[in-house]
Design a protein around this nucleic acid. Structure first.
Length: 913
RNA sequence: GGGCGCGUAGCUCAGCGGUAGAGCACUACGUUGACAUCGUAGGGGUCACUGGUUCGAUCCCAGUCGCGCCCA
């Protein structure tokens, strides 16, 4: 065996072996009639590359899957990719541009889609290979794509189903419009970004000679004391370019300044349109002048006001967010436009903004301008400011299907871990808004609705069926496609074969657990709940494990623009997949972000090496597993101890994983293997492996068992190195991935007597090492150990472990003596007293200090406990158990103190002599 | 504005009513036939602050101060 595990060479071979042996297939290795365990992968975008968040998310899933598979469950990890409408269309369009090929519009829909499919075939599978590098044990034979024929059919069927039940409707309303992609997007795809901007105040002249008194001076109580007569209203806006679409000015119904003006009109500058002053409580008297311009076609709040007050909505922009005025009948109607305004036609919205402000200044209706910060909605993909835009779109009336999704979590049929995410889930669902599901894109599931020339709609699974419904009328299909999340919302039933009643659907649905990031609870998790419950009347999963975000080592969100992205594949290349996985797992504390630093990965790479070398040790010493080995029948205390430790480790892994405490599982395994097995068991066990000893055979078998048990319980976390070592040890006949998880219970393999002995031996060795180190005894020097006094029952222990103590503490001999010799250093372990004769090398003063320190530490602790035990309130109110434990501890410390004091006295005597 | 979370060793984080822990980093020593990607020993903390509950608070409660995120 090499001294290191060569991850880069072994990983791909090991993965291939797993695939060829079919160990990842649904149900592989399952016990007969086993319970099923199924996880659906959150489908990565087909355009995507594996980022660290995927690596984390899929490591967690793989641990759960491998753990269950080894425990004999009938396991399915269902993989797949999402067609990711906007993202993919964007990638392919860029590709066309880069290669200077005809753009999407020139190609036309059909040819463009062909190109997307081509692209998908060539470069779409990258992320699958990357998941394999991570070790993800998905059943790739069942890989699904949200645009597959079967999945597509299922999506259309659901659309038709929901349409027919009246849960899907078409409506003309304001949507969030992304002017870059020229499509509607849903509320969730909008992110609010704060930006510094300006607030402009405009004067809109009152018509028909109306005037009002506007306060200009106030007394101390804020009461107006002087007024001026105004023949205009001042309105404020951050978006001057939309003023051409103004159809009203609103004032608060209780605002006495303006009440006589309600229903009068102002003349909209530039457009020359008469617009009505309306009373609506949306206008806040305390803000600005209390009068607010209303642009129903370009602002969500204004839209509501317009609906309430009967104002028309005039769209003054194109889909690209440039001004549309010249051939805009709605705009021109009722206008007495000034020539300048038509020159704005076709200008980009920001250019139009500058021009309008400039015109306002020139024409004298600019009242003022102020700087302020405000939040501007942006498209999460395009990063451009979205426009509220008036269009016809398809909506899911989510309110009608939301209740079962709320109930399922309320009554615990689906549980969310950690529970704090439940309230986020409820809060969103209880305030659900209609879901805009149509997108003006080409790549996606085209909406299965046809229109005849009169505009009647026919919703059907195919053109033929629509034609039948239409009775031969001329039809054209709705050009829009569905929101990507509409189809991924059907991921659970869609991947398992619905609407066919497949065996997989029967066996694996509802699925066991969904592992996902909190950032897509709304996008995806909540919608899957709603849609599965609406379509098949059942929950999609029993549990939802919500994990946090992976951030950089300073806690910043990783992003390309910040340049702080850690590429998991680079980490895997450098440290191996096992190290990357173990790092992520060890940091996966429930409900907390992880800050990833590379040094941590390097640390776990060292753990992989440690495991590798422990196995190498076993090989050197011919420690081979014995078929008839019974862990509970070993005789030597050391072997009995490690068997018990191993059982405890297995037990705590199971407990931790069952409650999704992945970090506890990983850290427990790390401590067990490195600090128990390697630091102590293998070191103490070395003397027992000498060929001439009777105990050697048992110890070799125990070492083999311990190593192999460790490989098994580490396998879900570090599948590659464990599988490789398993193969090296077992000759490759059976695979670790399908090896049965140990069932032995904790109690049967525990031996408290052996545990106490070994722990005492460890303390003794540590104490000797500590003394040696502090007294600067050369590391290579062998020194004698004098035994002065032993606690009851320890004599045989010292005898049994004599050689181990000698070796690990680098002693020349262990002798019983009656009195400590001149120049020797006494020290204590629990209640036993020893000394090290170090006359020529020791630092007397330093050693005395060391003992005094220990004495003070003990004395301080004892005094704390004494105070507590002297407190009547404590004695009467604390639980008896706690009182008793405190007393025992105090007594034990007192005994130790006595021994230390004895050591000090002896030492003083020696110094005085 | 509403909600959630977080302030514990130099750094990244566990813990969570009764002994304050890990990894990394740091210091010293060291190649003993598994491992220097290692071993041994060691230093390092008013558990953000202020009150309260309790026999007892890093832990529970309230407030303050800092930081982050989500929603409007």
């Amino acid at each position: 065996m090499e001294p290191y595990f060569d991850a880069s060479r072994a990983e791909q071979r090991l993965y291939r072996n797993w695939e060829e042996a079919g160990v990842f297939l649904a149900g592989a290795g399952a016990d007969h009639e086993a319970e099923s365990f199924c996880i659906l992968i959150p489908p990565p975008n087909v355009t995507g590359a594996l980022h660290i968040g995927h690596a984390f998310n899929n490591t967690i899933q793989d641990i759960l899957i491998r753990w269950h598979r080894m425990r004999g469950y009938n396991t399915l990890w269902q993989p797949g990719q999402d067609h990711a409408g906007i993202a993919t269309q964007m990638v392919v369009e860029r590709e066309l541009e880069r290669r200077q090929e005809p753009a999407r519009q020139e190609l036309g829909r059909e040819a463009f889609l062909e190109r997307v499919w081509q692209w998908k075939e060539q470069s779409g599978g990258e992320i699958v290979n990357q998941l394999k590098r991570l070790g993800a044990s998905c059943d790739w034979s069942r890989d699904r794509f949200t645009m597959d024929k079967g999945f597509h059919d299922a999506v259309l069927k659901v659309f038709i189903n929901l349409y027919e039940q009246g849960y899907i409707y078409r409506g003309k309303r304001l949507v969030n419009w992304d002017p870059h992609f020229e499509t509607a997007i849903s509320d969730l795809e909008v992110e609010q970004l704060e930006d510094k901007g300006r607030m402009w105040r405009f004067r809109y002249p009152l018509e028909n000679g109306e005037t009002y008194q506007h306060p200009v001076e106030y007394d101390r109580d804020g009461q107006p004391t002087a007024y001026e007569t105004r023949d205009y209203l001042v309105v404020a806006t951050t978006r001057p370019e939309t003023m051409l679409g103004d159809t009203g000015v609103a004032v608060h119904p209780d605002d006495t300044r303006y009440s006589h003006l309600v229903s009068r009109t102002v003349r909209l500058p530039l457009a020359g349109r008469s617009i009505r002053i309306v009373a609506d409580s949306y206008a806040d008297p305390a803000k600005g002048t209390g009068a607010v311009k209303i642009t129903p076609a370009h602002d969500f709040n204004d839209w509501e006001v317009g609906q309430r007050c009967g104002l028309s909505a005039i769209n003054v922009m194109t889909a690209k967010a440039s001004m549309r005025l010249r051939d805009n009948a709605a705009f021109l109607e009722g206008c007495d436009t000034e020539p300048e305004v038509l020159e704005l036609d076709g200008l980009d919205r920001y250019e139009a903004r500058r021009r309008i402000v400039e015109l306002a200044r020139q024409q004298g209706w600019l009242d003022g301008v102020s700087e302020e910060r405000h939040v501007v909605p942006h498209g999460d993909r395009s990063k451009v400011a979205v426009e509220p835009y008036l269009t016809d779109q398809w909506y899911v009336d989510a309110e009608q299907i939301v209740q079962p999704a709320i109930d399922a979590v309320r009554d615990g049929r689906t549980r969310i871990y950690p529970a704090q995410y439940e309230s986020i889930y409820f809060n969103w669902l209880e305030n659900i808004e209609p879901w805009c599901i149509s997108r003006q894109l080409w790549w996606g599931h085209q909406i299965p609705v046809w229109y005849d020339d009169e505009g009647n709609r026919y919703c059907a699974a195919s053109e033929e069926e629509a034609a039948k419904l239409a009775g031969g009328r001329n039809l054209r299909r709705d050009p829009d496609v569905l929101d990507t999340w509409f189809s991924s919302g059907l991921w659970p039933i869609g991947t398992l074969g619905w609407p066919e009643a497949t065996p997989e659907l029967e066996r694996y649905f509802p699925t066991s657990v969904l592992v996902t990031g909190f950032d897509i609870i709304f996008f995806w998790v909540a919608r899957m709940m709603m849609m599965q419950l609406a379509v098949v009347k059942d929950i999609p999963f029993h549990s939802i494990y919500v994990h946090a975000l992976v951030r950089d080592e300073h806690g910043k969100k990783m992003s390309k623009s910040l340049g702080n992205v850690i590429d998991p594949i680079e980490l895997i290349d450098k440290y191996g997949a096992d190290a990357v996985r173990f790092t992520l797992t060890s940091m996966a504390a429930l409900g907390r972000d992880l800050k990833l630093s590379e040094s941590r990965v390097a640390g776990y790479r060292n753990f992989v090496t440690k495991l590798w070398n422990a196995a190498r040790f076993a090989e050197f010493h011919n420690c081979e597993s014995q078929p008839d080995f019974e862990p509970d029948s070993v005789s030597h205390g050391l072997n009995r101890w490690i068997v018990g430790e191993t059982a405890r480790a297995r037990d705590s892994v199971d407990t931790a994983l069952a409650s999704y405490r992945f970090n506890d599982a990983a850290n427990g395994l790390y401590a067990y293997f490195w600090h128990k097995v390697c630091d102590w068991y293998l070191e103490l066990g070395k003397p027992l492996l000498a060929d001439n000893l009777e105990i050697a055979a048992e110890t070799r078998a125990t070492v083999a068992w311990v190593i192999e048990q460790s490989l098994i319980i580490l396998h879900p976390f570090m599948p590659f190195v464990t599988e490789e070592l398993w193969g090296l040890r077992k000759g490759g006949s059976d695979m670790l991935a399908l090896t049965r998880w140990p069932q032995y219970g904790g109690a049967k393999l525990q031996d408290p007597g052996a545990d106490a002995d070994v722990e005492w031996i460890i303390s003794l060795i540590e104490e000797i090492r500590s003394v040696r180190s502090e007294l600067r005894v050369p590391a290579g020097a062998r020194i004698p150990l004098h035994v002065l006094e032993l606690e009851e029952g320890r004599a045989s222990v010292v005898a049994d472990y004599r050689e181990m103590i000698t070796r690990l503490a680098r002693l020349s001999c262990i002798e019983e003596v009656k009195v400590a010799g001149r120049g020797s250093t006494p020290f204590s372990v629990a209640e036993s007293l020893f000394s090290l004769p170090l006359a020529d090398i020791m630092d007397l003063k330093g050693e005395l200090d060391r003992l005094e320190n220990k004495k003070h530490r003990l004395a301080r602790e004892i005094s704390k406990l004494d105070t507590r035990l002297g407190n009547q309130a404590f004695l009467s109110r604390a639980p008896q158990r706690v009182v008793e434990e405190t007393r025992q501890r105090r007594d034990k410390l007192r005994a130790e103190l006595a021994v230390v004091e004895q050591a000090i006295n002896r030492f003083r005597t020696l110094i005085d002599e």
